[in-house]
Design a protein around this nucleic acid. Structure first.
Lengths: 233, 233
DNA sequence: GTGCCAGGGTGGTCCGACCACTAATGGGTG
DNA sequence: CACCCATTAGTGGTCGGACCACCCTGGCAC
């Protein structure tokens, strides 16, 4: 924080910190339009190039968004905005990390499902039931399964939880886990799990929901663990 | 993906996607050094400015890191690298979001503490005990409390869990929650909670650890909820 | 062999120009 | 008067080049 530190800190990073500070301080609120890149650059005493890099970083973080020709705006700053970056984890993660991610899901999903059982309204549960039919109907459609779990988490009404959960189970991650699911009777077992979870939600039974979700995640983890030991291309 | 789409996609974003693709395809592996910014820019047919913005975005995502004068490198791609971004959530979040974050922690911490009780080795538990003394000794030092909880999560051996947990409890978040803790006998109560958690770890008792962690997080949540209803400056 | 240091190469920063796009302006038209 | 549309100022997007700060290597002196 001293001048000496500032001297050695890249100007771009300093600009990032400064803009974040102004947002945290309320100078810029959600939805507000920022000064032009040129003005901001002049204000902070940096070149427009460096200012653009700083803005680019904050855009990547989900804090800002830019509209070509219109200006740069602060996002709604909702957790979903800020945690979108997260998906890169699933994009590049491999092997052991997959198990770690699954272990975190094993902690979150049961609690989330239980919470959903207590909070979800009729409409949400009905929607979840619809997704369940999609999974049954077509073949294991990854996106349908993804939507099923996502809808349950969304039913908790906790946007932050949704964002975290999304990050831990992006489409590409799901796809990687599911690739190979056709084998054995696993698909049928998972289908049973899903129905059991749905029944618990219908019964508004948090304990049953927690148990069903736990069993489901553990089944997936067991399968994945076995699959990783005899990896295929 | 068509030419028409590419025509309307900003070159910077295209560069980001391309580099991510090359990493995902294994062209660039963890720890590898990338071609120079100038070479990359020429390779992808963009200016160095745009290439730098693309690199800046990937640095922000935790995929790349640059060393002044030495080159740009792919990170180890460990979850901790990729989830660091995350902390911005805690930096700019307010009010209701704070409660949402705490609710997620209420799901994670008990499970994490229980896991730590089962997995932690003697050295790790001893280290946690040391941190506990720091909290007792000095005044409520935010950083010491942060370190205490972080050490517990780290003892689970799950790097992904550590990264997620860190994101949900960055220093600034902790500071905001703790600001005002001096009041009442709350500090003493929290101290009791910490000791109870440590005892459970020493006893290698996952159930007791889970219970102690649950009680602790719920106490904080209850306090925060009451505090938000009568907000101060 | 050891230590120093000078050079080349790299990322960091700045500048100025032009392009692409948006939105407000204002005149024309019904 | 109300509506539409071309104009135009202003904004972000891209480019090219220049220079600075820093690292690393290799050759030199000791």
């Amino acid at each position: 924080m001293t001048d000496l530190d500032a001297r050695r800190t890249p100007v771009t990073q300093r600009a990032v910190e400064e803009i974040k500070r102004r947002i945290a301080d309320g100078d810029f609120g959600p939805g507000d339009r920022l000064p032009t890149e040129r003005d901001l650059a002049a204000d902070l005493g940096v070149s427009r190039s460096s200012m653009r890099e700083a803005i680019r970083a904050l855009i990547t973080l989900g804090v800002l968004e830019s509209r070509h020709g219109a200006g740069v705006y602060v996002t709604a700053l909702r957790p979903a905005d800020l945690l979108e970056t997260f998906s890169v984890l699933a994009e590049v993660s491999q092997g052991a990390t997959l198990l770690e991610v699954l272990q975190v899901r094993r902690m979150l999903e049961p609690a989330a499902t239980a919470l959903a059982a207590a909070r979800a309204d009729d409409e949400q549960i009905a929607h979840i039931g619809t997704l369940l039919e999609d999974i049954d109907g077509e073949e294991g459609t990854v996106s349908a399964d993804l939507g099923f779990h996502r809808a349950i988490v969304a039913a908790t009404g906790n946007a932050t939880l949704v964002a975290v959960s999304d990050g831990l189970s992006s489409a590409s991650f799901h796809a990687r886990v599911w690739s190979g699911y056709r084998e054995a009777g696993l698909t049928a077992k998972l289908r049973e799990d899903h129905h059991r979870i749905h029944e618990a939600l219908l019964a508004r039974d948090p304990d049953a929901a927690r148990a069903a979700a736990t069993a489901h995640v553990m089944r997936v983890e067991r399968w994945l663990r076995a699959g990783l030991q005899t990896p295929a291309g």
